[in-house]
Write a protein that binds this DNA or RNA. Structure first.
Lengths: 181, 181
DNA sequence: CAATATACGGAATCATCATTCCGTTTACAA
DNA sequence: TTGTAAACGGAATGATGATTCCGTATATTG
């Protein structure tokens, strides 16, 4: 089960290019874009895409692997902050904003199906839990909020923004609630 | 532009049946269900569906017209309540619950495209505004909450529930916010 | 009971994709 | 260079689903 023989130079180049272009295209148009569009955008034939990624889902898995890693790094950098409550607020803002600009993040946060992705998603979840824990310890966030609640809230805010609520307003409402001020 | 000559008896029967079955099927499976499934379920051929509704979208428009009307009636009945704050809470709970049980409500609340639907949706929005206004006057809801915020919040809660948060929890978090208790 | 305008069923058509296949091209080892 | 395995492009295939068409069936009317 060792390393396959190394890719031919052009093949390696194409694989990298396809993945990079696919990330860009998907971030703009979402996962519904036809494989043919990605191929065209990358300047290769569909066959070439399929030689490198056996199915569309596999290609998307590769993209999500990247994205989840990026989000996790973001969370971990925030978890270091010495103002955990502010870091938590920034995460909520930042992730919603990022999701609005990159249509692939949503799926990254939500539906992780591929086996190898599960592990990554767990890592992300653990990082979020740490960030949340710090914020709670600092008294910035209600103590009963679970990591799962947090994920849900992020999704909820994204949807609010998708339906026309400005980002800041969505986060404000989520943070403050509906009760009288 | 008068009334077309009346439908033949069997045709009228079929039209009604198709609409009714379509509502049921769509409420379970969402708007993605193939027209052929609706036709089969209604015991007619696809051609018959198309004779009564020129496109799939037209059929869905007819369904949404019904649904929006139902939701509006619900809102208006709540707007009568003499405990407006409680009525508001009930609406938030009720609409999310309803949406979870009927996949067509979401679209009814969110994307209203068809021309005639716009008018209906406006009516719904106005009814919601009245309910909200009463709740605010009674001091049960923050004064700066707009009808548009409300729509967004409902969507947000639905998505939270879709992602695994129990209904009560989603509404609780939306109501109370994330701050320390 | 005809005669016929209406309706009907469902096969055929059209469009959109994912995925596969294969004749052609290209990197690279000798 | 040249031979050949590795890659390529993109047409062909297979699915799914909306919409159209047309030969057949049936309310309705006289």
């Amino acid at each position: 089960m060792g390393d396959e023989r190394p890719l031919r130079a052009d093949a390696a180049r194409n694989r990298a290019r396809i993945l990079q272009i696919a990330e860009e295209v998907v971030s703009e148009r979402g996962f519904e874009v036809p494989v043919s569009v990605i191929a065209a955008e990358a300047g290769v034939g569909v066959g070439t895409v399929y030689r490198h990624f056996p199915t569309k889902e596999a290609l998307f898995g590769a993209i999500l692997t990247d994205k989840i890693g990026q989000v996790r790094e973001y969370v971990e950098s925030l978890a270091e902050s010495d103002d955990p409550a502010a870091a938590f607020r920034e995460y909520l803002n930042g992730i919603v904003d990022w999701t609005m600009r990159d249509r692939s993040i949503y799926k990254g946060l939500a539906e992780v199906s591929g086996t190898d992705l599960h592990a990554l998603a767990d890592g992300l979840r653990r990082a979020e839990a740490r960030l949340l824990g710090h914020a709670q310890a600092a008294g910035g966030v209600r103590a009963d909020l679970t990591p799962s609640d947090l994920k849900s809230i992020m999704m909820g805010c994204v949807v609010m923004v998708e339906h026309g609520t400005p980002l800041e307003r969505a986060v404000q409402l989520a943070t403050e609630g509906l009760g009288p001020r």
